[in-house]
Simulated assay, not measured.
Amino acid sequence: MNTEMSAPNASERKACWGARDDLWKCLDVNQDETSACGKQLKEFESKCPAQWVKYFSKRRDFLKYKDKIENEGYEPTEGASKL
């Protein structure tokens, strides 16, 4: 990935998204054990701009949280106020 602040071109975006998908598949198979997906993580970080890596990491956490809420329901934490 180039280090300039220019936006990635179409082939760079495609490479980034492919690397992200490979990493996410590995994490799904390995119950989010990042040590099992070092190769995919390194590939993802090298093919995507740093801001995208940060965004996609937060996005994955959000999607997993959303999926958990939809499948298991919401349970307030102990001591949370009941509105």
Results as ranks from 00 to 15, higher is better:
M1A: 12
M1Y: 12
M1P: 10
N2Y: 05
N2R: 11
T3R: 15
M5Q: 13
M5C: 14
S6P: 09
S6N: 14
S6K: 12
A7Y: 13
A7E: 14
A7I: 10
P8W: 06
P8H: 06
S11Q: 08
R13D: 04
K14E: 04
K14Q: 10
A15M: 06
C16H: 01
C16G: 02
C16A: 03
W17F: 13
W17P: 01
W17G: 03
G18T: 06
R20T: 07
R20D: 03
D21K: 11
L23C: 02
W24E: 05
W24P: 02
K25T: 04
K25N: 06
C26G: 01
C26H: 00
L27I: 00
L27V: 00
D28C: 00
D28H: 03
D28T: 03
D28M: 02
V29N: 01
V29A: 04
N30H: 12
Q31K: 14
Q31S: 12
E33H: 15
E33W: 12
E33A: 15
A36T: 06
A36Q: 13
C37N: 05
C37F: 05
G38L: 13
G38N: 11
K39F: 09
Q40P: 03
Q40K: 03
L41F: 08
L41A: 09
E43M: 09
E43C: 05
E43S: 13
F44R: 02
F44N: 02
F44D: 00
E45K: 04
E45L: 02
S46G: 09
S46E: 05
K47V: 00
K47A: 01
A50R: 15
A50C: 07
A50N: 11
A50M: 09
W52M: 08
W52R: 08
W52F: 12
V53I: 07
V53E: 01
Y55A: 05
Y55F: 15
F56K: 04
F56M: 07
S57Q: 08
S57Y: 10
S57H: 09
K58V: 06
K58M: 11
R60A: 02
R60K: 08
R60F: 00
F62E: 06
Y65K: 15
Y65T: 13
K66C: 06
D67F: 14
K68W: 15
K68N: 13
K68L: 12
K68P: 05
E70C: 11
E70N: 13
E72F: 12
E72T: 11
E72H: 14
G73D: 07
Y74P: 06
E75Q: 15
P76W: 09
T77A: 15
T77K: 15
T77H: 15
T77W: 15
E78D: 14
G79R: 10
G79K: 10
G79C: 07
A80G: 07
A80D: 11
S81Q: 14
S81D: 14
S81K: 15
K82Y: 13
K82W: 13
